[in-house]
Write a protein that binds this DNA or RNA. Structure first.
Lengths: 218, 218
DNA sequence: AATGAAACGAGAAAAAATTATCGATAAGAA
DNA sequence: TTCTTATCGATAATTTTTTCTCGTTTCATT
């Protein structure tokens, strides 16, 4: 009897997958061949049922008494997230935050391939940051024609966010990873994910001010 | 009849407060005196009831048909989060991510007062980044005695995360804002908030790969 | 004044996520 | 081979969060 997969997956589960993934790679590199939900849960102070539910969204199946083959599990997670295929991206705004993202090589592991950066500052245009050329934002249309950017990373000052987003839409990006605190107006169908550093700090602050809320979720 | 406040507040509500706060300050600076949940909800494509519930955790009370006085509301949110009093902090790891955080002045609005940075690299020790001195991490105990750091911001490479966290504990920080992907072992009572950039990217990736999940929450 | 509309607060209902439970299966020990 | 135990997958219960509903308050209009 066929059981259809749910069309939609729990957001918290998706958010926890990268944490597991990192741990799994650590274990693999130590020579481990299998891993159980119990072990993962122990590592993160969680319940094993939750880990099992989280992993199940990737379609992986394990063996009772043993667990999952680490290699398979890593592949299942990466496949679910689309992290085992390269996605071409560009970054707009090569200020300090932009530089930080270009400098962080962890995203390469997630298939993110940032070809280049764009900026308006003549002082940085023409230079390279961590091996990536910085172009004039005015040239984004021309360069976007040759290189097909799928994701645009937004690291401009808040005031320039919408303008930069529009430029990204022009070159046909499917998704915007928005590091600015601005709300973007985007057409239907464009995926936008906001990085809310202030939300993270709010949780920290609130815990200091109002005491612990609930247990931390990884 | 007295009704006791819930000891614990919904995490999602807390995470949405900074988004509202930003909007409220924009409105205030435009000269608006009052704002309703309906208006806020419209701005973010949410339901007004949710906004109202979120705001209610701060203890604010509004007036029917009118809404909330913007000034009062801003104060209530900032007070709830403890953002209207300065909290002294230091940053460990003045690499590109550390520089980005030192350079972002939005956190000043949240009461975060980053006095200085620490590093191990002799090339940056002794310099200043965005007006903050960079000290040798070996001196953290000495400097921590004079300046009482409450929050430690961790922006070192993953491999150095635990060591740096230990150094922060030595100087008595109450909370750690962890930008590294490492799980930290910390004593009971120390507050730790992890910034999970990979989780954010996982949501983006998953939406591209598996289609939209549910509506975006601000 | 009386009426109507907008918005609040509180509580109920619905949806989503977490946690608990249970039968099945595989590995290892007796 | 049989028994015990660890772990899986599935389903049920619980908890948390979101959404709905409704009565009340306030302002604006008649």
């Amino acid at each position: 009897m066929l059981v259809s997969q749910p069309r939609t997956f729990p957001l918290p589960s998706i958010q926890r997958l990268p944490v597991y993934l990192r741990f799994l790679k650590e274990q693999r590199d130590r020579g481990e061949m299998v891993v159980s939900c119990t072990k993962i849960a122990e590592e993160f102070g969680q319940l094993s049922v939750q880990v099992r539910k989280d992993l199940s969204i990737t379609g992986i199946i394990g063996r009772p008494k043993v667990g999952y083959k680490i290699g398979e599990l890593i592949e299942a997670i990466e496949d679910f997230l689309g992290w085992n295929t390269k996605t071409s991206a560009c970054l707009v705004g090569s200020g300090s935050l932009g530089k930080a993202i270009l400098g962080y090589d962890g995203f390469v592991e997630h298939g993110l391939d940032i070809h280049c950066a764009f900026d308006i500052d003549p002082k940085v245009i023409g230079t390279t940051i961590h091996g990536r050329p910085v172009y004039d934002i005015a040239e984004i249309a021309k360069i976007g024609e040759q290189q097909n950017f799928v994701i645009g990373i937004l690291t401009v000052p808040a005031a320039a966010a919408q303008r930069a987003a529009n430029a990204l839409l022009e070159v046909g990006v499917k998704a915007i990873w928005n590091y600015t605190p601005s709300r973007l107006e985007l057409p239907q169908g464009i995926i936008c994910e906001d990085v809310k550093l202030s939300a993270s700090f709010a949780v920290l602050s609130s815990r200091m001010k109002n005491g612990p809320l609930q247990e931390e979720n990884y």
